[in-house]
Simulated assay, not measured.
Amino acid sequence: MPIDPVKATTAAPRTASLAWDHKDVLLYHLGIGAGSHQGGRSLATDPGELRYTLESRLHVLPSFATVAGGGRAVAGALTMPGIDIDLAAVLHGGQTVTLHRPLPIRATGVTQTSRVAAVYDKGKAAVIVLRSDTEDDDGPLWTGVSEIFVKGEGGFGGERGTTERLPAPDTEPGLTVDRHVREDQALLYRLSGDWNPLHADPEFARLAGFDKPILHGLCSYGIVLKAVVDTVLSGDVARVRSYVTRFAGVVYPGETLRVRIWRDTPGPGRVQVTAGVVERDDAPVLTDTLVEYA
C-alpha cells in the first residue's frame, strides 16, 4: 500500500535548517500579485504596495511562512517513511499558520521540525496532516498545519477524522474585494519553491484531471490574506495571529478571485472570509476561512 499510516505517524520528526532574505520575501509577494494591475489601475508605485515590493519599506506577509526556505515542510511530507504517492494525485486540502511573532525580513539558522500528525481515510482519498514547528535563536516563530489530499489512496480502513466547518454568515459581507490573477501568476509563484508540474505543464495537468495548469492553492491563500491585511488591518501585517482555510476548488491563471470579508465575525478580533471565482459563477475556492488578529 502506498501509504502506511502507522509507519508515517510514528516516524521520527524531520528537522531542516531554513534561511531567507529580502529577495525571497519580494519574490513571494510578487508571486501573490503585489504591485500588479488591479481594478483598472497599476499598483506598481502605490505606497501601500511598496511595503511588499520595495526593500527599503519591506514587511513580511505572514503567509510567507508557507514558502520560507523553499517550502520544505509540505514537500518533505511526501517523502516521509510510509508515504509513496503520485504527485498527480496530490492536492492541498487545508492550511493553518499560527504566528508567534512577526516574521523577519532576513533569517539564518532557523530550525523547522516536521512530522506527520495523522493520516485519515476519506474513502476515495487519504488526507495526510503535517505539523511543522519553526523557531530561531529567539524562540518560536510559527506553527504550520497542512492537510494534503491524495486521490485514490483511501479505503484502507483508517480513522476518517473530523472536519470543522465554518458556514458563511447569513448577512452580506462588510467588504468585497476582487483580485485578478495574472496569466503567468503560477509560473512566478512556483519560483518560491513549489515545483509541482501541475501548475505549469499542460500535459501533467491533464493527467491530473484538469483542462490546464491550475494556480497553487497556497498562492490563493496568500492573495486572500493580503486582501484582508490591506483592507481590514490597515496594511499592518504584524497584527495577524493566525490564518486557517480549507481549499474547496481551483483557480486557473487569468481568472478573478472575489474575496468576501466579514469583520469581527464570529467575534471580536476575527475576520471570516470566503473566496470564489467570478468567471465561474462564484465557484468556491477558499471556505472555512478565518483570520485572527490583534
Rank of each mutant, 00 (worst) to 15 (best):
I148R: 01
V150H: 03
V150G: 04
V150W: 02
K151D: 07
G152I: 12
E153L: 14
G155P: 11
G155W: 03
G157T: 00
R160C: 08
T162V: 14
T163S: 13
T163V: 15
E164N: 13
R165V: 13
L166F: 10
A168R: 11
A168H: 02
A168Y: 00
P169M: 05
E172Q: 15
G174L: 06
L175C: 11
V177K: 09
D178T: 11
R179P: 03
H180L: 12
H180Q: 13
V181S: 14
R182W: 01
Q185E: 09
A186Y: 02
G193P: 08
W195I: 13
P197N: 02
P197C: 05
L198W: 01
D201F: 09
P202V: 06
P202R: 11
E203T: 14
E203M: 12
A205I: 06
K212F: 07
K212Q: 15
G217P: 06
Y221T: 01
G222R: 01
I223L: 12
V224M: 10
A227C: 12
V228A: 09
V228T: 11
V228R: 07
V229P: 08
D230P: 04
G235A: 09
G235W: 06
A238S: 15
V240L: 11
Y243C: 04
T245W: 00
V250W: 00
V251L: 12
V251Y: 05
P253Q: 05
E255V: 00
E255G: 05
L257W: 00
L257K: 03
V259L: 07
R260Y: 02
W262Q: 11
W262E: 09
T265R: 09
R270F: 04
V273G: 09
G276K: 01
V277R: 02
V278R: 15
R280G: 06
D281H: 14
A283V: 03
V285Y: 03
L286Q: 05
L286R: 02
V291A: 12
E292A: 14
